[in-house]
Write a protein that binds this DNA or RNA. Structure first.
Lengths: 237, 237
DNA sequence: ACCTGAACACCGTTCAAGT
DNA sequence: ACCTGAACACCGTTCAAGT
């Protein structure tokens, strides 16, 4: 149980060749299937039919491996080069980033939490900058960039956050707690409860996978992009 | 080394009385001083001169304890009840939330990552809703709420993220890497590098504590709040 | 009620040794 | 070059037993 099943003899190569790519692919699968918290180097090794130390030879250590998994995730986001209008382009990039996050929520959370230091992760920032720079925002260029990057990535991260520990009956307990808030302590939440129920951050009990905040995300993108557009001197609307 | 120093005898009370509050306060301090990653139930117990099992009697388990630490953190944000204008009120709440995060960055990261299920954490959402609801946004009420909550919390979280592993020479390596980006692969980043250097998400090497993105945060708040204001029917500007 | 002491089932990482 | 086997220094959590 502590290692490969038909335990190999010393120095004998594994039956399936252990490559860097195979390790990363399996790590991606395990994180997504069993959750980031229950992922471990040891369980990964067991799954590959190999001893833990083998992994260290191929991928350095745990945090380097997670960096490779991150890379594998962000790589999946394709840029919509066919869209010429900068506003539509940004909307679409936002949507694709978010779609990719929902397709692999556990890895997405990982990718937001750790610093993405791979230069591949600069592909999207570079493209975004390519759209922002020609607008003539001057000193606000960096702020528009930060506002977009921070809001979009941050929003999606918060959307995904509760996935962590939502057991069957935890949900019910949470719903009951939210439904029975004290109107004296939380007058506004209780007064507007029907509108918010399971549709607002901090007022949800289901996974975002079940009831995503699609419309709120679109609203946010519009707010940001229209706001930036309003500051563009007078080139195109 | 594995427990209290002058090792007490069985059943003898600790010299310093171990209360729930004392445990939470010490956990807060340890997380902030030594970082979230190196915090453990065992080190906390040692620091309190007590055996690990003692903690479990008082605070349940690790995740419940972290919930209490979270609560202790968010509690510190005071709402600016003296401000009547809703736009200024929201700007100020955003600033205070962010200030509190910078005052305790490690705990702030924790509080964003875990689900804050304490009802105290609904104090700010309730107050925000109290300002948004009278604006007459109708169906957009929930979206404006989500856009504000998600952007602000998400932005600050991303600002704080790289704190995790910034050693002395890691910074220099990162700066060097960013400064020597390939202009063919990243034409826009390299062309606008001076404007972005150490001031943009994904293009930083110093801690946000050293060079915070103050202006970008203000810009984001303005974008959001002005955007919402533009959709207010015609009550107040 | 409150705490000890030991145990259980895990971790990440290192390293000499094998082939 | 690549992998084993064992070891080191940790974890979170449980539980009978003590007072």
């Amino acid at each position: 149980m502590s290692a490969a099943s038909p335990s190999r003899k010393r120095g004998v190569k594994a039956e399936v060749p252990i490559t860097r790519e195979a390790i990363v692919a399996m790590a991606f699968r395990l994180i997504e299937d069993r959750g980031l918290t229950s992922f471990s180097m040891r369980s990964l090794a067991t799954e590959l039919g190999v001893f833990p130390a083998t992994l260290y030879w191929h991928v350095g250590d745990r945090s380097q491996l997670l960096g490779l998994v991150e890379y594998e995730w962000i790589r999946r986001v394709e840029l919509p080069d066919e869209i010429s209008d900068w506003r539509e382009w940004m909307m679409e990039v936002g949507r694709r980033y978010r779609s990719n996050a929902f397709a692999h929520p556990e890895v997405a959370r990982l990718a937001t939490m750790e610093r993405a230091r791979n230069s591949e992760s600069l592909r999207i920032p570079d493209a975004l900058l390519g759209k922002l720079a020609p607008l003539g925002l001057n000193d606000d260029l960096v702020h528009a960039f930060n506002a977009l990057m921070g809001s979009v990535r941050g929003f999606v991260f918060l959307e995904l956050a509760p996935r962590a520990d939502s057991s069957p009956q935890e949900k019910a307990a949470m719903e009951a707690e939210l439904r029975s808030l004290d109107p004296d302590e939380f007058p506004n939440l209780t007064a507007n409860f029907d509108q918010l129920a399971d549709r607002a951050l901090s007022v949800r009990w289901n996974d975002s996978a079940d009831r995503p905040l699609d419309d709120s995300f679109e609203y946010l993108l519009r707010l940001l992009i229209d706001g930036i557009a309003a500051q563009v001197p007078r080139k195109r609307k």
